[in-house]
Design a protein around this nucleic acid. Structure first.
Length: 583
RNA sequence: GCAGCCGUAGCUCAGCUGGAUAGAGCGCUGCCCUCCGAAGGCAGAGGUCGUAGGUUCGAAUCCUACCGGUUGCGCCA
């Protein structure tokens, strides 16, 4: 339960009662009424702006309306105090028993606490979509993690999520891949190939591909013209690269539900169909584009092109769909791809792109509007660069020096959980520093450690409790029945309030498509827990386990268990394994 | 030239889709840390939220114009 949603409904209901009694005019628009946690703790637990946003319609001064509503809200059993403050805020303070009940809710729900109601609403998250021409590098890691965590977050919030990967296997770059593989094939047959020519992929990872092709075909294509071997080699190489990419993703703990091939779309005529669809609606014409200003293009010459009327849908200029040789642009097949996703039952699409593709957002959104006739929506999350550092200094990657370059190497160096967590500690569109030393540091300014440590400490307490009272019921559901009313210290109540706010955070982070908020919530929760722990150092009576007071200890164990459970639940959104012991 | 993103404490960044006295970590300063649950704790200083206008009960948040940084800008994906 999102308690703020609950109180918003209670406030609206109270307004309804006032209207019924004739105190307020009927039919007030309550859409702008909010119930939120106040920033200042001193302002209570729930604050509403109702009096301020409704005063005009009600014909009352905000503070007068606030007093009326406050009187009505005082009757609520969970409310112990109501204050009218500032320009007309109404602040509610909630009973300790109310918080005890929320703690029991957390314990009963376990890691399902915070789950949204199933919405029966499908969302497609497309991410990674790295070109199938080589292993994943560090630049891909952020998009992979952000997409995967966003998908998990949406799933937790109650959406029916599909994780999708778009394989760009139709462009010129896969032909280059095929030629590169062909070279390795000749090499595997014993030919001296010398340096890899400019324009081909030089990576060693293509050697096994060449060897496999040599094994399969022998010398059959050794001296054949390109047309004879290219499609087969391309097919094999793309498959091999995708296999490698899937392994890289698996190392990072990422798994897609659907892989869609661009080539398959093209061969099935989907691009033709999409263009015909637009043609029929007069969204396509042949025209000449202006050269971009302020940028020197020596080879620019105006020429007629097949253009999409993107300007009709909010883009700055109309966009080309065909190259001068008559083949489709990337944009054209991407239109078909998004129309395909829409047709598969995803009106809501999210794409995760690198920030260098930022210039394509408008045109893609324009195309989605056109091709779904306004029924589909596309949100694009752009992931900024990751700056790799070591000890605060830029980390130069070099193959020769043995410093790593691939995603796999990064994961092997620091672990997948560290990579995943750190990638989510910034907004997707902000630059991110990834310090190879800091992320392994055991200190407060390493959020991964700090959060994991809080979780491990919780379990340490639970282990101690099991030693002290071997028969005590300390499972989550059992602890829901503990005497929770005995938790009265402000630090304890503060912790419960954080736990109780988890559903609201899940909901708003999911709605905003911002998984990084979970990282900050986890950090705050860990800080509050460590704070309470430290208080126990100074004040012995605040320790979790008191041999002479098993009842109170049980209540505190309930709190500890709940903290562990919410941390675990947040880490689950990130795909990070919560640890029970630090080593 | 145009477009997207960014501009908040000395540094790195949050700021809950418009709320009340703008927060955290690092760094700095000062105390505390012989024992439970090592990988520290507590407190303090530090801000005209890039600038200037606008919208309204109320703006770091929305709009406009500038300034600075960044990423892009037909036949690459």
């Amino acid at each position: 339960m999102n308690l703020f949603k609950y109180f918003r409904e209670e406030i609206v209901a109270a307004l309804g009662r006032l209207a019924e009694a004739g105190t307020l005019p009927g039919g007030l628009d309550t859409a702008k009424v909010t119930a939120e946690p106040p920033r200042e703790e001193a302002h209570g637990d729930v604050a509403t702006n109702a009096a301020m946003v409704l005063s005009k319609g009600a014909g009352l001064k905000p503070r007068d309306l606030a007093e009326l509503l406050a009187a009505e809200l005082r009757a609520h059993p969970a409310v112990v105090a109501v204050e009218v403050a500032g320009p007309g805020f109404i602040n509610l303070r909630l009973a300790e028993s109310f918080w005890a009940e929320r703690l029991a809710d957390v314990l009963k729900a376990g890691t399902n606490w915070g789950d949204g109601e199933p919405k029966g609403h499908r969302v497609n998250v497309e991410f990674v979509s790295a070109n199938p021409t080589g292993p994943m590098h560090i630049g891909h890691a952020r998009g992979a993690v952000v997409g995967d965590a966003l998908a998990s977050l949406l799933a937790k919030a109650g959406f029916d999520v599909t994780r999708e990967y778009y394989i760009n296997d139709a462009g010129a770059q896969v032909d280059v891949l095929a030629r590169s593989a062909f070279l390795r094939y000749r090499e595997a047959l014993g030919e001296a190939i010398g340096d890899i020519p400019e324009g081909l992929y030089p990576g060693e990872y293509l050697k096994p591909v060449g060897e496999a092709l040599a094994k399969a075909h022998g010398a059959a294509f050794k001296d054949s013209p390109e047309a004879e071997w290219l499609p087969a080699f391309r097919h094999y190489a793309v498959d091999a690269m995708m296999g490698m990419i899937r392994e890289d993703l698996a190392a990072l703990g990422v798994k897609h539900d659907v892989f869609t091939s661009e080539r398959a779309l093209v061969e099935a005529g989907r691009v033709d169909a999409a263009l015909a669809f637009l043609e029929a609606r007069d969204e396509i014409y042949t025209g000449v584009l202006e050269p971009p200003k302020g940028k020197v293009l020596d080879d620019w010459e105006p020429r007629p092109q097949v253009l999409f009327r993107a300007t009709r849908f909010g883009d700055d200029v109309d966009r080309p769909l065909k190259k001068s040789d008559g083949s489709y642009t990337y944009f054209a097949s991407d239109i078909a791809y998004h129309q395909d996703k829409f047709g598969r039952g995803f009106p809501d699409m999210i794409d995760i792109w690198g920030a260098d593709h930022g210039g394509y957002v408008k045109r893609m959104q324009a195309a989605v509007r056109a091709v779904t006739e306004g029924q589909g929506s596309l949100d694009v999350k752009l992931c900024q660069m990751v700056n790799l550092l070591k000890g605060g200094q830029p980390y130069k990657m070099s193959k020769r020096a043995g410093t790593f370059v691939t995603l796999r190497d990064l994961v092997e160096a620091v672990g997948k959980d560290v990579v995943r967590f750190i990638m989510l500690t910034r907004k997707n569109d902000a630059h991110l520093d990834f310090d190879l030393d800091k992320v392994l540091e055991q200190s407060r300014d390493n959020p991964v450690f700090y959060v994991q440590y809080a979780h491990a400490r919780c379990h340490s307490v639970l282990r101690h409790a099991a030693d002290m009272w071997p028969t005590a019921p300390i499972s989550g559901p059992a602890l829901a029945a503990a005497p929770l009313a005995r938790l009265t210290d402000p630090a304890e109540l503060g912790l419960i309030k954080l736990l109780a706010g988890w559903p609201r955070l899940v909901e708003s982070a999911a709605e905003a498509h911002e998984p990084h908020r979970v990282a900050f919530m986890l950090y705050d929760l860990a800080a509050a827990f460590h704070g309470l722990w430290n208080k126990g150092k100074d004040e012995a009576r605040l320790r979790f386990l008191l041999e002479d007071d098993p009842d109170l200890s049980l209540a505190r164990l309930a709190l500890v268990r709940a903290v562990a459970s919410v941390i675990a639940s947040g880490l689950a959104v990130f795909g990070v394994e919560p640890v029970e012991e630090m080593r």
